[in-house]
Amino acid sequence: MSEAKSTAEQLVRTYVDVWNERDYSKLPDIVSESFVMHDRAAPEEGVPGSAGEIHGPEGLEQFVREVTTGFPDFEVTILDLVSTDGLVMYEGEISMTHEGEFDGIPPTGRTAQFREMSKFRVADGAIREHRAYFDQQEIYEQLGLTED
């Protein structure tokens, strides 16, 4: 395994730890100032970036805090991870319970568990980009936010 590959993988694993452990102090060390996250769940207002995007380490911290306020037990489990120099992808499972307001939606008290794919671009020792892919409709259904 090349040094660059192991560094990129470690950065992504640390990134997942930030979500799971809420250790925001790690963010400046792992994501670049120009970091962009593409996530359909990113609200149109309240975090730096347009709808579906989060910009910079501060924007990422703000978004993680919003998600974990709405879903205090939010947890990502990496099921499989592959990488090359500068590119890391993983398949993960997310579990969460909707116990607080998120993006204007009052808590439902329901739990959601779903698979997601994430793709990361890493350069110069930092994560530059994160693209998250998941079925948002599946989450809405599990949280009881759709009509039967």
Rank of each mutant, 00 (worst) to 15 (best):
S2G: 04
S2A: 05
A4I: 06
S6M: 06
S6H: 05
A8H: 04
E9N: 08
Q10W: 10
L11S: 01
V16I: 15
V16C: 12
D17A: 05
W19I: 09
N20H: 09
N20L: 15
E21L: 13
D23T: 06
S25K: 15
L27K: 01
L27N: 02
I30S: 00
V31W: 00
S34L: 02
V36S: 00
H38P: 03
R40M: 13
R40K: 12
R40I: 14
P43Q: 12
E44W: 02
E44A: 13
G46D: 05
G46Y: 07
V47D: 01
V47W: 08
P48C: 04
P48V: 04
S50K: 12
S50N: 12
S50F: 01
A51N: 13
G52Q: 10
I54A: 04
H55G: 04
P57H: 11
E58H: 07
G59I: 06
Q62T: 14
Q62L: 06
F63C: 09
V64S: 04
V67P: 02
V67T: 11
T68M: 09
T68D: 13
T68F: 12
T69A: 12
G70K: 11
P72N: 09
P72H: 09
D73V: 07
F74M: 05
F74T: 09
E75K: 07
T77F: 08
L79D: 12
L79H: 11
D80I: 05
L81D: 11
V82F: 15
V82S: 10
S83I: 11
T84G: 12
D85Q: 15
G86H: 14
V88C: 02
Y90R: 07
E91L: 11
G92M: 03
G92P: 02
E93V: 10
I94D: 03
I94L: 10
S95C: 03
T97H: 06
H98M: 08
E99L: 11
G100W: 06
G104A: 04
P106D: 13
G109V: 10
R110I: 10
T111H: 07
T111I: 14
A112W: 04
Q113D: 10
Q113P: 04
F114A: 03
R115F: 11
E116L: 15
E116W: 13
E116A: 15
M117V: 07
M117F: 05
S118Y: 06
F120S: 01
R121P: 05
V122H: 04
A123G: 07
A123N: 08
D124P: 06
I127S: 00
H130D: 10
H130G: 01
A132R: 12
Y133G: 01
D135V: 10
D135T: 14
Q136D: 09
Q137E: 13
Q137T: 08
E138W: 07
Y140P: 06
L143G: 10
T146C: 13
T146A: 09
D148L: 14
